[in-house]
Design a binder for these strands. Structure first.
Length: 413
DNA sequence: TGTCCACTGGAACGTACGGCTT
DNA sequence: AAGCCGTACGTTCCAGTGGACA
């Protein structure tokens, strides 16, 4: 066996052999729901109290839950709903719960069809009018004589692109039901969500409100310690890493999800190196790694024109100028399109694409006024140059253009 | 003080698609 | 088969605008 085979042999054995670090890797994923949620006793009690009446078959108040990402909204809700369903089973109460993540599911239609399937109504993926699906939902519901608790996670995604028709209909559904009842529990991490809502919907929806505060560093540390106990083997030392992860996440938004991700990736790095101690260095590297992966992933899934727009901004960044106007970007974009044999989109559309890139954080753009010289968006790259370069290289068509020098650059000084 | 640039961003509309109902 | 439906992605049109400059 030669040297290289030996190396590989060792690497593979590291994976095959029992992990030196993990006992239960799942416990560090953010969708894992432990039996105990530290520092959320109050929220759990409140939610339980509000939902309680549904066990007796009475209608309970609709609830709106707020809080930033990683404050435990989803975990607490799932936790309480699970117990609620178990309790209902135990006492034979006609209670059903349904949990839908509106952003993941995507559209109003699919949210509704998810609700249908939760009460065993099968509807086609597409093709039906919304109203038709809603009618089926209603009549099935009424014939089943149940209390349905509907949790709509990331409810803001439903009204982002205007039209809260579904929410409006849902909040009035009880008026049309004689045998069954529906309670709605909305979860949002957008605090401005309320302003976007139709006032009639808002008043019905927010009969009760629960606000989830961000965790502070100590609370995050408790959460991580609890998860670490489940996830790591006894002889693994992670105290230093846990402290650092909590501090980093607390400084950002008190986001537990972020803290857990950091710890998990740091632990994986340590594991790969065959260590039993997770160090601060592992955490710092994890931080870089997560950011890097995020960029590469989002960039990879971008549609072609968005990539070309990003490439234009990338190429412009090569010239020393800081911040580019939409006009500049559009000119380079058109040049690239011509070079690649693609039909360019309109400037209006490209302007919209830049906004989308801004939202996902790949670029930063803000509207500025140059007085005499008009008013436009000033855009810069939002992530390191090298990361963009690497990610663009993954796309065959972009690869050849990464080194391209736009002629347009000569015309602007 | 008013003008006027270079856009922004809302709104309405067009087209294509997959897939239903009748 | 015809007629709808929701969704995604674009285009066209256009009123609106912050502030440097004449």
């Amino acid at each position: 066996m030669n040297k290289q085979s030996e190396i590989l042999e060792e690497v593979f054995n590291n994976f095959l052999g029992e992990s030196r670090i993990f006992k239960n890797r799942e416990a560090l994923r953010h969708d894992y729901i432990p039996d105990y949620l530290p520092h959320r006793e109050e929220e759990i009690r409140m939610l339980g109290q509000i939902l309680g009446p549904s066990l007796r078959g009475t209608l309970c108040s609709n609830i709106l839950i707020y809080g930033k990402t990683g404050t435990g909204k989803t975990a607490v809700t799932k936790f309480v709903l699970k117990r609620l369903a178990e309790k209902a089973d135990e006492i034979n109460s006609p209670l059903r719960v349904s949990f839908v993540n509106c952003r993941l599911v995507g559209t109003e239609y699919r949210v509704l069809s998810a609700l249908c399937s939760s009460i065993d109504v099968r509807v086609p993926f597409t093709g039906l009018a919304l109203g038709e699906v809603f009618d089926r939902f209603k009549s099935a519901l009424d014939s089943q004589k149940i209390v349905l608790v509907v949790a709509l996670d990331e409810i803001d995604a439903l009204i982002k692109d205007r039209g809260d028709i579904l929410l409006y209909e849902l909040t009035r559904i009880n008026e049309n039901l004689s045998q069954s009842k529906v309670s709605i529990l909305g979860i949002s991490n957008d605090l401005r969500f309320k302003d976007m809502l139709d006032p009639r919907v808002l008043s019905t929806l927010s009969e009760e409100e629960i606000i989830f505060k961000p965790y502070n560093a100590e609370e995050l540390q408790d959460i991580l310690e609890q998860r670490a106990k489940i996830a790591f083997k006894e002889d693994v030392s992670a105290d230093v890493a846990i402290k650092l992860c909590s501090a980093i996440a607390a400084a950002e938004h008190g986001d537990a999800r972020r803290a857990l991700d950091l710890l998990r990736v740091a632990a994986e790095l340590a594991e790969r190196e065959g260590e039993r101690t997770i160090t601060e260095d592992h955490v710092y590297r994890a931080q870089k790694r997560i950011e890097h992966d995020r960029v590469v992933e989002t960039l990879k899934s971008l549609p072609m024109h968005s990539k070309i727009v990003l490439l234009s901004i990338f190429l412009l960044s090569k010239s020393k100028a800081k911040g580019f106007m939409t006009g500049d970007i559009y000119n380079v974009y058109c040049e690239l399109c011509k070079e690649m044999g693609v039909n360019p989109l309109t400037q209006r559309r490209v302007s919209g694409l830049i906004n989308e890139l801004d939202v996902i954080g790949l670029v930063n753009s803000r509207v500025v006024s140059l007085g005499r010289y008009g008013r436009s968006k000033k855009t810069t790259l939002g992530v390191p140059y090298s990361v963009i370069k690497e990610a663009l290289f993954e796309d065959e068509r972009m690869r050849n253009m990464v080194t391209y020098i736009p002629r347009y650059l000569n015309s602007i000084r």
